[in-house]
Write a protein that binds this DNA or RNA. Sequence first.
DNA 1: ATACAAACTTGTAATGATTACAACTTAATT
DNA 2: AATTAAGTTGTAATCATTACAAGTTTGTAT
Lengths: 142, 142
Amino acid sequence: MSDMRAKMEDITNKLKSNNIRLSHQRLKVLEYLDHNRIHPTVEQIYEGLHDEIPTLSKTTIYNTLNALTESGLVKVLTIEDNETRYDIRTDAHGHFKCTACGEIYDFEVNMDSLEIQGLNGFRVYSRDMYFSGICPKCMEQE
Amino acid sequence: MSDMRAKMEDITNKLKSNNIRLSHQRLKVLEYLDHNRIHPTVEQIYEGLHDEIPTLSKTTIYNTLNALTESGLVKVLTIEDNETRYDIRTDAHGHFKCTACGEIYDFEVNMDSLEIQGLNGFRVYSRDMYFSGICPKCMEQE
DNA sequence: ATACAAACTTGTAATGATTACAACTTAATT
DNA sequence: AATTAAGTTGTAATCATTACAAGTTTGTAT
Ligand SMILES: [Mn+2]
Ligand SMILES: [Mn+2]
Ligand SMILES: [Zn+2]
Ligand SMILES: [Zn+2]
């Protein structure tokens, strides 16, 4: 996908600068997020890593994701109200959730193109866009 | 704010067409949402109505909000991961959450102005925009 | 007005995601 | 190899939301 050595170096530096250790579990969670670009829930990460690391606890996954979120290495998605999802893509992009199959798709967005009113004097740090509807795959099956 | 008689008629019709009865509790929840445009949580609605209706239960508030959401009379906000908020404004607009004071502001947005890529063939039903940062009030107090 | 059935309300219990905590283990540094 | 701060883990606690069953109300037909 992208250059793994550069990415690992980036990760190492970001973690070190935040006094976060490069533990076995954390690297595995990061690897899972990198290889499974599905905006997974904690449950999915847990199930996905369980065979390889049977002793991994959900608490560790929560701790890891909270630490990675604080240092900016992952982004939290609150597109659903009942469970938090995580994204290793941290650049600006939008998310589309198909209400039929539940899959969450990335889409590219030019944030500067958006015409807005009513935020004069506001300091905007983050911009999230959540769309929903039906994906092409699900539209075929009708 | 707007013409109350027209609004009530609209509400009555929408509820009747969905076989939802106009109970005392539901009207009070709707009135609270109309008078308190703060995108309240269930807890806030509960506290706000408790003096007037001491017997009101949280279950009823949840049931009411779910029914109103399904008939399109209120919108759900998942700007926060830990608690759902509700909005009586159902037209397209964006939301800004101040990370300092927690207040959620509305802003106007021209959805058609947004340049996006990667949603060809998708049927988009809803578009939500959640921004966050610091509001002008909180920026003064620094 | 009265009767009726479907819908609604309420308190309590259950569920499910997330966090708190304390004992044990590991990673990084000397 | 020793040291220490940070991390991991299982369990218990918390908190928002839903499930459920018994009693109540609403809208409608008589
Ligand atoms: Mn994404
Ligand atoms: Mn709003
Ligand atoms: Zn789909
Ligand atoms: Zn503020």
